[in-house]
Design a protein around this nucleic acid. Structure first.
Lengths: 161, 161
DNA sequence: CAGCTACTTGAGACTGAGTCTCAACACATC
DNA sequence: GATGTGTTGAGACTCAGTCTCAAGTAGCTG
C-alpha cells in the first residue's frame, strides 16, 4: 500500500480536513525518504505553482504535531524531514561527502541509553544518534582526488512506490 | 590551569594572530559549558560593546576550524557551541523542560558504532548521540503542574574557573 | 622608525529559512 | 443559502548567520 494512503486515512480519522493542498504536500513528502522544507516547497510547487510556501510549512508542522513526520538536524545545512508513520524506530548514518543517508537499527544502543538515563535520574523521552562518515564510493573518490578525477557520484533518493 | 590559556597557547603556536577581540571571545567562550552564538555575542559585548557581531561569528568559525569548539544541533533553538579542547569525547543528555545539559561517556556505544559503520562499508568520521528527557526536578514540576505551582527551576551554567 | 603587505575589524547590507498577519476563500452544518 | 470555523495565498517580518568593503592594525624588512 502506498504510504500516503495510510497518512491520509489517519488524518481523516482524526477529523483533520484534507484539502487538495494538504493532499499534495502529503503525497510529495511521502515520495521522499528525507527532504528539507525548502526542497518540499519546490517539489510541491512544481506540481501546483499556486500552493504558497506558508501552506507547505504549515502542513509540515501539522504532520509533525500529529507524529507523522520527524525532524532531523543533520549538521551541514537546514534540518531534514522524514515521514516516519508505520516505520520502525531507527537512527542515521550519513555520508558527509555525497549526502547519502542510511537508516540503521541498534537495540543494543537503546539498552545502554536506558542505563545512562537511569544513572542521572532522567526520564527518557527521545533520542537521536547520528553517525557521520564517508561511504564506500566517496572513500575512493577521496583517494583519487589527488589525481583530480571524476566528480562525486549522486544518490537518487525518490522512493519508487 | 584556566582553559583559555591553553587555547591561546595553541593558537599562538599555530601562528594565528591573537588580537584583543579574539582574546575576549576565547575567554568568554571558555567561561561557559554550552552557549549559542548570539549568547556569546551579547556576553562579549557586555565586556566591550565595540566588538562587532561579525567578529564574534568569525572567531567562533576560526575556533571551530581549529578543532577547539564543537557545534551541537540540539533540537529546540539555534545550535549550541562548546569549547572541547583538552576535554575527553562525550555525548549529551538534555532536559527538554529546563535546558540542563549533562555530558556522558559510553565506550560501549562507541564499540557498537564501529560495528554499524563496518556493516555498511563506511569510514566513521564523527558522531552525535543525544538523549532528550526530563531531569528529576522537572519530572516533579510536571507532576505538580496540575496544581499550578512554582516555576521551573533554573540551572546556572557559568564555569567558576 | 618609515614603508609595505597581509590580516583583521566594525558597520551595515544582505540572505535563507522560517513565522506571522490578514483578508479572501472553502467547507460543513444547519 | 446563511453562518461559523478552518484554511489559504500573499507578502511583510524576524532571526541567525554571512558577506562586503573601507579603515585599521600587526608584523615584517630595511
Amino acid at each position: 500500500m502506498k504510504r500516503f494512503v495510510e497518512v491520509e486515512q489517519l488524518l481523516r480519522g482524526r477529523g483533520i480536513r484534507l484539502t487538495a493542498q494538504r493532499q499534495l504536500v502529503v503525497r510529495r513528502a511521502a515520495a521522499y525518504l528525507h527532504f528539507t522544507a525548502e526542497e518540499l516547497v519546490k517539489n510541491v510547487q512544481s506540481f501546483d505553482a499556486s500552493v504558497a510556501r506558508g501552506t507547505v510549512y504549515r502542513t509540515l508542522a501539522l504532520l509533525h504535531r500529529q507524529g507523522i513526520v520527524e525532524k532531523h538536524d543533520f549538521r551541514y545545512g537546514p534540518p531534514n524531514y522524514e515521514v516516519t508513520l508505520a516505520k520502525a524506530h531507527h537512527d542515521h548514518l550519513m555520508c558527509v561527502q555525497c549526502g547519502e543517508i542510511i537508516e540503521f537499527q541498534e537495540p543494543r544502543v537503546e539498552r545502554i541509553q536506558d542505563d545512562v538515563v537511569r544513572r542521572y535520574g532522567y526520564q527518557l523521552l527521545s533520542h537521536t544518534h547520528k553517525l557521520y562518515g564517508l561511504c564506500r564510493a566517496c572513500q575512493q573518490v577521496d583517494r583519487r582526488q589527488a589525481r583530480k578525477l571524476s566528480p562525486p557520484h549522486l544518490h537518487v533518493e525518490e522512493v519508487v512506490a
